[in-house]
């Protein structure tokens, strides 16, 4: 079986002859997942910081819940969002089913718990170190939370990237709420699923390699930033 070899050839051909259709699919993948990760970060980070810094009833239960939600199956999220956004559903009048916006919503729901749970862990560790110092300087909880976020920004960047990786790689949710419409909601993963369905395994795997390359490049970039920053800021 020479499929792997063919796959790499296909991947190379895809990258080398960067055609408009592929560019559009890659662009939409990035656009949807980056938007989702920004939204998830704007929600997940404050939630993580709040749980890290505050002590309240049900906190432990909330942590358990968040950690569990990290394993939320994309298909379930997709189905939930589908039922919400369907014309027959409660938000049907928005008419955003089968649009990139619906895909952003689904992915944001999928990765918000990941960002919240992981950042909670990072921020709580930092809080143990910073707690007394910040209180001594007169920081109230919200200020302290923001200080923690800023001071752990490089670790948090890794977490955000983990969220992005999960978003850009999932297929279950975007397939259901996006519908894999050619030129409108087709992203890398749904394109891969489609080519697999057509039995064109080398092309599917080739697309997979392109996706993987993208994620690797992004992560390498983040690693470089982190490394430089650590050297600079200690």
């Amino acid at each position: 079986m020479n499929s792997l070899g063919e796959a790499f050839t296909a991947a190379w051909r895809l990258i080398a002859g960067f055609d408009a259709e592929l560019a559009q699919v890659v662009g939409l993948s990035l656009q949807v997942s980056l938007t989702a990760v920004v939204i998830a970060t704007l929600i997940g980070l404050p939630v993580g910081a709040m749980i890290a810094v505050e002590r309240f009833r049900g906190r432990q239960a909330l942590i358990v819940l968040l950690n569990a939600l990290m394993g939320l199956p994309p298909v379930v999220v997709g189905l939930l969002v589908y039922l919400l956004l369907s014309r027959a559903g409660p938000l049907g009048s928005l008419g955003i089913l089968f649009t990139p916006t619906a895909m952003v919503i689904a992915q944001a729901i999928l990765i918000t718990p990941i960002i919240a749970a992981l950042s909670r862990q990072t921020l709580e560790d930092a809080w143990r170190e910073y707690d007394e110092q910040l209180r001594s300087l007169g920081a109230r909880r919200i200020t302290a939370g923001m200080t923690l976020i800023w001071d752990t920004r490089f670790s948090l960047l890794t977490i955000v990237l983990a969220g992005f990786g999960r978003a850009v790689a999932e297929v279950g949710a975007v397939m259901i709420v996006g519908g894999n419409i050619d030129g409108v909601t087709r992203v890398m993963t749904t394109a891969i699923a489609l080519e697999t369905s057509k039995g064109d395994l080398p092309l599917a795997l080739g697309l997979g390699i392109v996706l993987l390359t993208l994620v690797i490049v992004l992560n390498a970039l983040a690693a470089v930033i982190r490394e430089m920053a650590l050297r600079r800021y200690g």
Binding site: Q31, L34, V37, V38, I96, T99, P100, T101, V104, V184
Partner: peptide
Amino acid sequence: VMRSAVLAFALSGLLQLPMAG
């Protein structure tokens, strides 16, 4: 600069999304 660039890109994406097509 990097952060705001990424943010701007993502936000602009968000704004454009519903209008696609």
